[in-house]
Design a protein around this nucleic acid. Sequence first.
DNA 1: AACGCTTCTTGCCATTTGGCAAGCAGAAAA
DNA 2: TTTTCTGCTTGCCAAATGGCAAGAAGCGTT
Lengths: 196, 196
Amino acid sequence: NILMRQEKLIHFLQSTGFINPQKSEEIAAYFSTYVISRNEYFLKEGTICNTYLFLENGFMRAFAYDTAGNDITTNFYEGSQVVFEVSSFFHRTKSQENIQAITDCEGWVITYEELNYLFHALPEFREFGRHLLVKGFALLKTRMLSMITETAEERYKRLLNHNAEIFQYAPLKYIASYLGVTDTSLSRIRKEFSKK
Amino acid sequence: NILMRQEKLIHFLQSTGFINPQKSEEIAAYFSTYVISRNEYFLKEGTICNTYLFLENGFMRAFAYDTAGNDITTNFYEGSQVVFEVSSFFHRTKSQENIQAITDCEGWVITYEELNYLFHALPEFREFGRHLLVKGFALLKTRMLSMITETAEERYKRLLNHNAEIFQYAPLKYIASYLGVTDTSLSRIRKEFSKK
DNA sequence: AACGCTTCTTGCCATTTGGCAAGCAGAAAA
DNA sequence: TTTTCTGCTTGCCAAATGGCAAGAAGCGTT
Protein backbone atom coordinates (compact mmCIF):
# COMPACT_ATOMS: atom_id res chain seq x y z
CA ASN A 1 0.00 0.00 0.00
CA ILE A 2 1.54 3.24 -1.20
CA LEU A 3 -0.06 5.50 1.40
CA MET A 4 1.48 3.50 4.19
CA ARG A 5 4.92 4.00 2.78
CA GLN A 6 4.43 7.73 2.51
CA GLU A 7 4.28 8.10 6.27
CA LYS A 8 7.54 10.03 6.53
CA LEU A 9 6.63 12.38 3.70
CA ILE A 10 3.20 13.06 5.18
CA HIS A 11 4.73 13.67 8.56
CA PHE A 12 7.25 16.03 7.00
CA LEU A 13 4.52 17.99 5.23
CA GLN A 14 2.79 18.47 8.56
CA SER A 15 5.93 19.38 10.45
CA THR A 16 5.76 23.14 9.92
CA GLY A 17 2.17 23.42 11.09
CA PHE A 18 0.93 24.97 7.86
CA ILE A 19 -0.63 21.81 6.43
CA ASN A 20 -3.26 19.70 8.17
CA PRO A 21 -3.24 15.87 8.06
CA GLN A 22 -5.88 15.61 5.37
CA LYS A 23 -4.18 18.06 3.03
CA SER A 24 -0.85 16.36 3.67
CA GLU A 25 -2.12 13.09 2.29
CA GLU A 26 -3.65 14.90 -0.62
CA ILE A 27 -0.37 16.60 -1.43
CA ALA A 28 1.69 13.47 -0.87
CA ALA A 29 -0.41 11.71 -3.50
CA TYR A 30 1.26 13.90 -6.13
CA PHE A 31 4.69 12.49 -5.28
CA SER A 32 6.23 9.46 -7.02
CA THR A 33 8.72 7.04 -5.57
CA TYR A 34 12.38 7.64 -6.34
CA VAL A 35 15.40 5.47 -5.75
CA ILE A 36 19.04 6.13 -6.53
CA SER A 37 22.14 4.05 -5.90
CA ARG A 38 25.36 5.07 -4.22
CA ASN A 39 27.54 7.35 -6.41
CA GLU A 40 24.76 8.02 -8.92
CA TYR A 41 23.82 11.60 -9.73
CA PHE A 42 20.55 13.24 -8.81
CA LEU A 43 21.64 16.41 -10.62
CA LYS A 44 24.49 17.14 -13.02
CA GLU A 45 25.91 20.60 -13.55
CA GLY A 46 24.87 22.20 -16.81
CA THR A 47 21.36 20.73 -16.61
CA ILE A 48 18.22 22.31 -15.17
CA CYS A 49 17.07 20.87 -11.88
CA ASN A 50 13.53 19.74 -12.57
CA THR A 51 12.98 17.44 -9.64
CA TYR A 52 12.01 18.31 -6.08
CA LEU A 53 13.06 15.39 -3.93
CA PHE A 54 11.98 14.47 -0.44
CA LEU A 55 14.76 12.20 0.74
CA GLU A 56 13.39 9.48 2.98
CA ASN A 57 16.45 7.31 3.56
CA GLY A 58 20.09 7.73 2.66
CA PHE A 59 22.69 10.43 2.30
CA MET A 60 23.54 12.78 -0.53
CA ARG A 61 25.90 15.65 -1.16
CA ALA A 62 26.04 18.67 -3.44
CA PHE A 63 29.34 19.78 -4.89
CA ALA A 64 30.86 22.21 -7.34
CA TYR A 65 34.28 22.54 -8.92
CA ASP A 66 36.46 25.54 -8.14
CA THR A 67 38.62 27.26 -10.75
CA ALA A 68 41.51 24.88 -10.02
CA GLY A 69 39.25 21.90 -10.71
CA ASN A 70 38.92 20.83 -7.09
CA ASP A 71 35.72 19.20 -6.03
CA ILE A 72 34.11 21.27 -3.23
CA THR A 73 31.24 19.84 -1.20
CA THR A 74 28.64 22.57 -0.79
CA ASN A 75 26.06 20.62 1.17
CA PHE A 76 25.13 17.32 2.76
CA TYR A 77 21.62 15.89 2.85
CA GLU A 78 20.20 13.20 5.09
CA GLY A 79 16.79 11.57 5.53
CA SER A 80 13.66 13.71 5.97
CA GLN A 81 15.05 16.67 4.06
CA VAL A 82 14.24 18.09 0.66
CA VAL A 83 16.95 17.94 -1.97
CA PHE A 84 17.09 20.23 -5.01
CA GLU A 85 19.18 23.08 -6.33
CA VAL A 86 17.12 26.12 -5.41
CA SER A 87 18.39 28.55 -8.02
CA SER A 88 18.33 26.17 -10.97
CA PHE A 89 14.94 24.77 -9.99
CA PHE A 90 13.09 28.04 -9.50
CA HIS A 91 14.86 30.15 -12.09
CA ARG A 92 14.96 27.37 -14.69
CA THR A 93 18.66 27.93 -15.26
CA LYS A 94 21.52 25.47 -15.69
CA SER A 95 22.84 24.23 -12.38
CA GLN A 96 26.41 24.97 -11.41
CA GLU A 97 26.26 22.20 -8.85
CA ASN A 98 26.12 18.44 -8.90
CA ILE A 99 24.09 16.42 -6.45
CA GLN A 100 25.16 12.86 -5.86
CA ALA A 101 24.02 9.97 -3.67
CA ILE A 102 26.69 8.90 -1.20
CA THR A 103 24.65 5.91 -0.06
CA ASP A 104 21.73 4.12 -1.70
CA CYS A 105 18.74 6.42 -1.29
CA GLU A 106 14.95 6.29 -1.38
CA GLY A 107 12.53 9.17 -1.53
CA TRP A 108 9.61 10.89 -3.18
CA VAL A 109 9.68 13.36 -6.05
CA ILE A 110 7.55 15.85 -7.93
CA THR A 111 8.47 17.87 -10.99
CA TYR A 112 8.73 21.64 -11.25
CA GLU A 113 5.38 21.79 -13.04
CA GLU A 114 3.66 19.73 -10.38
CA LEU A 115 5.16 21.78 -7.59
CA ASN A 116 4.17 25.00 -9.25
CA TYR A 117 0.64 23.76 -9.73
CA LEU A 118 0.43 22.85 -6.05
CA PHE A 119 1.90 26.20 -5.00
CA HIS A 120 -0.78 28.03 -6.93
CA ALA A 121 -3.61 25.74 -5.91
CA LEU A 122 -2.78 25.36 -2.22
CA PRO A 123 -1.79 28.44 -0.18
CA GLU A 124 -0.73 26.25 2.72
CA PHE A 125 1.69 24.30 0.54
CA ARG A 126 3.04 27.59 -0.73
CA GLU A 127 3.66 28.72 2.85
CA PHE A 128 5.29 25.39 3.55
CA GLY A 129 7.59 25.80 0.56
CA ARG A 130 8.55 29.29 1.58
CA HIS A 131 9.19 28.13 5.10
CA LEU A 132 11.69 25.55 3.87
CA LEU A 133 13.37 28.06 1.60
CA VAL A 134 13.74 30.61 4.38
CA LYS A 135 15.00 27.94 6.74
CA GLY A 136 17.63 26.86 4.24
CA PHE A 137 18.66 30.47 3.79
CA ALA A 138 19.02 30.96 7.53
CA LEU A 139 21.08 27.78 7.84
CA LEU A 140 23.44 28.95 5.14
CA LYS A 141 23.82 32.31 6.88
CA THR A 142 24.72 30.53 10.08
CA ARG A 143 27.27 28.46 8.23
CA MET A 144 28.72 31.58 6.64
CA LEU A 145 29.11 33.21 10.03
CA SER A 146 30.70 30.04 11.35
CA MET A 147 33.14 30.10 8.45
CA ILE A 148 34.17 33.66 9.31
CA THR A 149 34.28 33.50 13.08
CA GLU A 150 35.27 29.93 13.94
CA THR A 151 38.44 27.93 13.46
CA ALA A 152 38.41 24.78 11.38
CA GLU A 153 38.39 22.70 14.55
CA GLU A 154 35.31 24.48 15.87
CA ARG A 155 33.52 23.96 12.59
CA TYR A 156 34.50 20.29 12.73
CA LYS A 157 33.00 19.96 16.21
CA ARG A 158 29.86 21.73 15.10
CA LEU A 159 29.35 19.31 12.23
CA LEU A 160 30.10 16.39 14.52
CA ASN A 161 27.41 17.54 16.91
CA HIS A 162 24.76 18.37 14.35
CA ASN A 163 25.37 15.85 11.56
CA ALA A 164 27.32 13.04 13.15
CA GLU A 165 25.92 10.44 10.78
CA ILE A 166 27.58 12.09 7.79
CA PHE A 167 30.93 10.94 9.14
CA GLN A 168 29.92 7.32 8.78
CA TYR A 169 29.23 7.61 5.08
CA ALA A 170 31.22 10.46 3.57
CA PRO A 171 34.97 10.13 2.96
CA LEU A 172 37.15 12.67 4.73
CA LYS A 173 37.83 14.74 1.65
CA TYR A 174 34.13 15.47 1.12
CA ILE A 175 33.80 16.67 4.69
CA ALA A 176 37.05 18.64 4.51
CA SER A 177 35.99 20.75 1.54
CA TYR A 178 32.59 21.33 3.15
CA LEU A 179 34.36 22.68 6.22
CA GLY A 180 36.69 24.78 4.10
CA VAL A 181 39.94 22.96 4.82
CA THR A 182 42.10 20.43 3.01
CA ASP A 183 41.79 16.75 3.84
CA THR A 184 45.32 16.87 5.23
CA SER A 185 44.35 19.55 7.70
CA LEU A 186 41.14 17.81 8.65
CA SER A 187 43.08 14.65 9.36
CA ARG A 188 45.27 16.64 11.76
CA ILE A 189 42.34 18.41 13.36
CA ARG A 190 40.70 15.07 13.96
CA LYS A 191 43.91 13.75 15.51
CA GLU A 192 44.16 16.70 17.88
CA PHE A 193 40.50 16.35 18.71
CA SER A 194 40.76 12.64 19.55
CA LYS A 195 43.50 13.38 22.07
CA LYS A 196 41.06 15.34 24.21
CA ASN B 1 3.74 64.18 -6.75
CA ILE B 2 4.37 60.87 -5.03
CA LEU B 3 4.11 58.67 -8.13
CA MET B 4 6.95 60.54 -9.78
CA ARG B 5 9.23 59.84 -6.89
CA GLN B 6 8.45 56.12 -6.95
CA GLU B 7 10.11 55.71 -10.33
CA LYS B 8 12.97 53.58 -9.04
CA LEU B 9 10.66 51.34 -7.03
CA ILE B 10 8.32 50.85 -9.97
CA HIS B 11 11.24 50.09 -12.22
CA PHE B 12 12.56 47.59 -9.69
CA LEU B 13 9.20 45.83 -9.46
CA GLN B 14 9.25 45.41 -13.23
CA SER B 15 12.83 44.26 -13.39
CA THR B 16 12.19 40.54 -13.08
CA GLY B 17 9.57 40.48 -15.82
CA PHE B 18 6.84 39.05 -13.61
CA ILE B 19 5.00 42.32 -13.03
CA ASN B 20 3.65 44.57 -15.76
CA PRO B 21 3.88 48.38 -15.60
CA GLN B 22 0.29 48.87 -14.49
CA LYS B 23 0.50 46.33 -11.67
CA SER B 24 3.83 47.82 -10.64
CA GLU B 25 2.28 51.18 -9.97
CA GLU B 26 -0.57 49.51 -8.14
CA ILE B 27 1.82 47.63 -5.91
CA ALA B 28 4.08 50.62 -5.38
CA ALA B 29 1.11 52.54 -4.03
CA TYR B 30 1.17 50.29 -0.96
CA PHE B 31 4.68 51.47 -0.04
CA SER B 32 5.39 54.42 2.27
CA THR B 33 8.43 56.65 2.23
CA TYR B 34 11.24 55.83 4.61
CA VAL B 35 14.32 57.80 5.58
CA ILE B 36 17.10 56.92 7.99
CA SER B 37 20.26 58.78 8.92
CA ARG B 38 23.80 57.51 8.97
CA ASN B 39 24.52 55.15 11.89
CA GLU B 40 20.86 54.69 12.77
CA TYR B 41 19.40 51.20 12.98
CA PHE B 42 16.87 49.77 10.59
CA LEU B 43 16.75 46.56 12.64
CA LYS B 44 18.07 45.70 16.10
CA GLU B 45 18.85 42.15 17.16
CA GLY B 46 16.28 40.68 19.51
CA THR B 47 13.39 42.37 17.69
CA ILE B 48 11.22 40.98 14.93
CA CYS B 49 11.88 42.42 11.50
CA ASN B 50 8.51 43.78 10.45
CA THR B 51 9.58 46.06 7.64
CA TYR B 52 10.36 45.21 4.04
CA LEU B 53 12.49 48.03 2.69
CA PHE B 54 13.26 48.95 -0.88
CA LEU B 55 16.41 51.03 -0.56
CA GLU B 56 16.44 53.79 -3.13
CA ASN B 57 19.55 55.75 -2.16
CA GLY B 58 22.29 55.11 0.36
CA PHE B 59 24.22 52.25 1.87
CA MET B 60 23.47 49.91 4.74
CA ARG B 61 25.06 46.90 6.35
CA ALA B 62 23.90 43.92 8.38
CA PHE B 63 26.03 42.62 11.19
CA ALA B 64 26.04 40.13 14.05
CA TYR B 65 28.26 39.60 17.06
CA ASP B 66 30.34 36.46 17.34
CA THR B 67 30.89 34.65 20.65
CA ALA B 68 33.92 36.83 21.41
CA GLY B 69 31.80 39.94 20.99
CA ASN B 70 33.32 40.98 17.68
CA ASP B 71 31.11 42.80 15.24
CA ILE B 72 30.91 40.81 11.98
CA THR B 73 29.45 42.39 8.86
CA THR B 74 27.19 39.83 7.22
CA ASN B 75 25.99 41.90 4.29
CA PHE B 76 26.14 45.23 2.52
CA TYR B 77 23.20 46.86 0.79
CA GLU B 78 23.19 49.61 -1.80
CA GLY B 79 20.50 51.43 -3.78
CA SER B 80 17.84 49.50 -5.71
CA GLN B 81 17.96 46.49 -3.42
CA VAL B 82 15.55 45.17 -0.83
CA VAL B 83 16.67 45.20 2.77
CA PHE B 84 15.20 42.97 5.46
CA GLU B 85 16.22 40.00 7.58
CA VAL B 86 14.66 37.08 5.75
CA SER B 87 14.37 34.61 8.59
CA SER B 88 13.07 37.03 11.21
CA PHE B 89 10.65 38.64 8.76
CA PHE B 90 9.05 35.48 7.39
CA HIS B 91 9.23 33.30 10.48
CA ARG B 92 8.26 36.11 12.86
CA THR B 93 11.20 35.34 15.12
CA LYS B 94 13.66 37.60 16.88
CA SER B 95 16.47 38.72 14.62
CA GLN B 96 20.03 37.73 15.45
CA GLU B 97 21.30 40.46 13.18
CA ASN B 98 21.38 44.22 13.21
CA ILE B 99 20.91 46.34 10.13
CA GLN B 100 22.36 49.81 10.18
CA ALA B 101 22.59 52.74 7.77
CA ILE B 102 26.17 53.59 6.88
CA THR B 103 25.11 56.69 4.97
CA ASP B 104 21.89 58.68 5.05
CA CYS B 105 19.30 56.58 3.21
CA GLU B 106 15.94 56.95 1.52
CA GLY B 107 13.57 54.22 0.45
CA TRP B 108 10.11 52.72 0.47
CA VAL B 109 8.63 50.31 2.99
CA ILE B 110 5.71 47.99 3.58
CA THR B 111 4.94 45.95 6.69
CA TYR B 112 4.80 42.18 6.97
CA GLU B 113 0.99 42.26 6.94
CA GLU B 114 0.89 44.39 3.83
CA LEU B 115 3.42 42.22 2.04
CA ASN B 116 1.55 39.08 2.98
CA TYR B 117 -1.69 40.55 1.75
CA LEU B 118 -0.08 41.41 -1.57
CA PHE B 119 1.50 37.96 -1.86
CA HIS B 120 -1.88 36.33 -1.46
CA ALA B 121 -3.73 38.77 -3.67
CA LEU B 122 -1.21 39.02 -6.50
CA PRO B 123 0.40 35.87 -7.88
CA GLU B 124 2.87 37.94 -9.88
CA PHE B 125 4.08 39.78 -6.80
CA ARG B 126 4.44 36.42 -5.08
CA GLU B 127 6.63 35.22 -7.95
CA PHE B 128 8.59 38.41 -7.75
CA GLY B 129 9.16 37.90 -4.03
CA ARG B 130 10.27 34.35 -4.53
CA HIS B 131 12.58 35.40 -7.30
CA LEU B 132 14.36 37.84 -4.97
CA LEU B 133 14.60 35.26 -2.23
CA VAL B 134 16.08 32.66 -4.54
CA LYS B 135 18.48 35.20 -5.97
CA GLY B 136 19.65 36.15 -2.50
CA PHE B 137 20.11 32.50 -1.69
CA ALA B 138 22.18 31.93 -4.81
CA LEU B 139 24.34 34.96 -4.05
CA LEU B 140 25.06 33.69 -0.57
CA LYS B 141 26.00 30.28 -1.99
CA THR B 142 28.43 31.95 -4.34
CA ARG B 143 29.92 33.89 -1.47
CA MET B 144 30.23 30.71 0.58
CA LEU B 145 32.08 28.99 -2.25
CA SER B 146 34.31 32.03 -2.60
CA MET B 147 35.06 31.87 1.11
CA ILE B 148 36.14 28.24 0.79
CA THR B 149 38.05 28.33 -2.47
CA GLU B 150 39.55 31.79 -2.70
CA THR B 151 42.23 33.62 -0.75
CA ALA B 152 41.42 36.80 1.12
CA GLU B 153 43.04 38.80 -1.64
CA GLU B 154 40.86 37.21 -4.29
CA ARG B 155 37.76 37.90 -2.25
CA TYR B 156 38.92 41.48 -1.85
CA LYS B 157 39.30 41.86 -5.60
CA ARG B 158 35.90 40.31 -6.16
CA LEU B 159 34.25 42.82 -3.83
CA LEU B 160 36.17 45.64 -5.42
CA ASN B 161 34.88 44.62 -8.84
CA HIS B 162 31.29 44.01 -7.86
CA ASN B 163 30.64 46.53 -5.09
CA ALA B 164 33.30 49.19 -5.50
CA GLU B 165 31.10 51.92 -4.05
CA ILE B 166 31.03 50.21 -0.67
CA PHE B 167 34.68 51.11 -0.23
CA GLN B 168 33.86 54.79 -0.33
CA TYR B 169 31.47 54.60 2.59
CA ALA B 170 32.32 51.65 4.83
CA PRO B 171 35.34 51.76 7.14
CA LEU B 172 37.93 49.07 6.60
CA LYS B 173 36.92 46.99 9.59
CA TYR B 174 33.37 46.52 8.27
CA ILE B 175 34.72 45.29 4.96
CA ALA B 176 37.34 43.11 6.63
CA SER B 177 34.87 41.12 8.70
CA TYR B 178 32.63 40.74 5.66
CA LEU B 179 35.56 39.23 3.77
CA GLY B 180 36.44 37.00 6.72
CA VAL B 181 39.76 38.61 7.65
CA THR B 182 40.95 41.02 10.32
CA ASP B 183 41.30 44.69 9.52
CA THR B 184 45.05 44.34 9.98
CA SER B 185 45.23 41.69 7.28
CA LEU B 186 42.97 43.61 4.95
CA SER B 187 45.21 46.63 5.31
CA ARG B 188 48.15 44.47 4.21
CA ILE B 189 46.24 42.87 1.37
CA ARG B 190 45.31 46.30 0.14
CA LYS B 191 48.93 47.37 0.33
CA GLU B 192 50.10 44.37 -1.68
CA PHE B 193 47.32 44.95 -4.16
CA SER B 194 48.18 48.60 -4.71
CA LYS B 195 51.75 47.65 -5.63
CA LYS B 196 50.50 45.82 -8.70
C1' DA C 1 43.38 76.23 17.14
C1' DA C 2 43.34 72.40 20.36
C1' DC C 3 41.54 68.22 21.81
C1' DG C 4 39.75 63.67 21.61
C1' DC C 5 38.20 59.96 18.81
C1' DT C 6 38.28 56.79 15.12
C1' DT C 7 40.61 54.81 11.25
C1' DC C 8 44.38 52.98 9.06
C1' DT C 9 49.10 51.36 8.75
C1' DT C 10 53.10 48.81 10.15
C1' DG C 11 56.60 45.94 12.74
C1' DC C 12 57.28 41.80 15.25
C1' DC C 13 56.18 37.33 16.08
C1' DA C 14 52.76 33.36 16.84
C1' DT C 15 49.31 30.35 15.04
C1' DT C 16 46.76 28.21 11.58
C1' DT C 17 46.48 26.07 7.43
C1' DG C 18 48.33 24.38 2.99
C1' DG C 19 51.31 21.62 -0.34
C1' DC C 20 53.78 17.76 -1.33
C1' DA C 21 55.20 13.24 -0.95
C1' DA C 22 55.82 8.90 1.37
C1' DG C 23 53.76 5.20 3.63
C1' DC C 24 50.14 2.27 5.34
C1' DA C 25 45.76 -0.11 5.56
C1' DG C 26 41.63 -1.73 3.85
C1' DA C 27 38.39 -2.43 0.09
C1' DA C 28 37.42 -3.53 -4.49
C1' DA C 29 38.76 -5.61 -8.74
C1' DA C 30 41.04 -9.08 -11.44
C1' DT D 1 44.98 -14.95 -4.00
C1' DT D 2 47.20 -11.18 -5.99
C1' DT D 3 46.82 -6.69 -7.69
C1' DT D 4 45.12 -2.16 -7.86
C1' DC D 5 42.93 1.65 -6.12
C1' DT D 6 41.25 4.70 -2.71
C1' DG D 7 41.29 6.78 1.69
C1' DC D 8 43.77 8.28 5.55
C1' DT D 9 47.84 9.64 8.13
C1' DT D 10 52.19 11.96 8.92
C1' DG D 11 56.69 14.59 8.42
C1' DC D 12 58.71 18.61 6.60
C1' DC D 13 58.47 23.09 5.34
C1' DA D 14 56.06 27.25 3.18
C1' DA D 15 52.38 30.54 2.93
C1' DA D 16 48.55 32.94 4.81
C1' DT D 17 46.54 35.11 8.44
C1' DG D 18 46.12 36.74 13.25
C1' DG D 19 47.28 39.38 17.70
C1' DC D 20 49.17 43.13 19.78
C1' DA D 21 50.83 47.57 20.18
C1' DA D 22 52.69 51.86 18.54
C1' DG D 23 52.27 55.58 15.64
C1' DA D 24 50.35 58.50 11.95
C1' DA D 25 46.58 60.70 9.77
C1' DG D 26 42.09 62.46 9.40
C1' DC D 27 37.66 64.12 11.35
C1' DG D 28 34.47 66.33 14.20
C1' DT D 29 33.65 69.01 18.43
C1' DT D 30 34.41 72.53 21.41
